[in-house]
Simulated scan of single mutants.
Amino acid sequence: MEIEVSSSMHLMYVSEIQQEMYDSAQRRGTGIAKRSLEYLSKKISEGNSVVASENGVWVGFCYIETWSHGRFVANSGLIVSPDFRHSGTATKIKQKVFELSRSKYPNAKIFGLTTGLAVMKINSDLGYKPVIYSELTQDEEFWNGCKNCVNYDILMSKERKNCLCTAMLFVPPNNNINGTANTQSEIKYK
C-alpha cells in the first residue's frame, strides 16, 4: 500500500472519496461534513491531503486546512474504503497527514473533531489532547463548514461550545495553550 502526499495524479479518486464520505456519514448517522468535488479536488491538487492506494485502487484519504492565519491546522475528512478498514490504514493515514501538517506549519496547533473512538485513540497516540471548543480556532469560516453536518443544529443550540464531536488539539513544542506549554511529546511511528 502507498500512502502519499496528494498530487494531481490522485484526482482520479475524488468522486469515490466524496461518495464514501457521504455514505459513511449516512451509515453512522453523524460525523463527516459534506465537501464538494471542487473543494476536495483543490485539496488533492495543492498537496494538502494524503491519499492511500493499492495497485491503483483507492484505499483512504485525509486533508488539512489552515485557520486563523495559519495558527491552527485541522486534519479533517479521514475516510478509509470499507474493504480496507480494521487493518491499521487509518492510523497510517493520520500519521502521514500529521507529518504533513507539522512540516508545512511547524508552529501551528493541530486539531480535529471526531465522534469515533478509534480516531480519538489515534489522535491521542499522536499527542493530541481533548479540549473544549473554545480552544479551537474561532474562525467563522471553519464553523460554517459544519453546516453540512447532521449535527449542526446541536452545535448551534449549544452556542458552538460543544457538540457530539470530541475536539482534540496538538500543541507543538514552543507553543502553548492558555499559557501552559505542551508537555506531551509526539509519538513517532516507524
Rank of each mutant, 00 (worst) to 15 (best):
E2R: 13
S6E: 01
S7M: 07
S7T: 11
S8Q: 11
L11G: 05
L11P: 02
V14M: 12
S15R: 15
S15W: 11
E20V: 08
D23L: 15
T30I: 12
T30C: 14
R35I: 09
E38T: 14
L40Q: 06
S41G: 15
K42Q: 13
I44T: 01
N48D: 09
S49T: 01
E54A: 10
N55P: 08
G60C: 12
G60Y: 07
I64T: 04
W67Q: 02
S68W: 01
G70I: 00
A74K: 06
N75M: 13
G77Y: 05
L78A: 11
H86P: 01
T89E: 03
A90D: 03
K96A: 14
F98C: 08
S103G: 08
P106W: 07
N107Y: 10
T114P: 06
T115H: 10
G116D: 06
L117M: 11
V119Q: 10
M120N: 06
K121T: 04
I122F: 06
I122H: 05
G127I: 07
Y133G: 14
L136S: 09
W143K: 09
G145Q: 07
N151T: 02
S157L: 05
E159N: 14
R160S: 07
K161H: 03
C163H: 01
C165P: 00
M168T: 00
F170N: 03
V171C: 08
P172Q: 01
N174R: 12
Q184S: 01
E186S: 09
K188H: 08
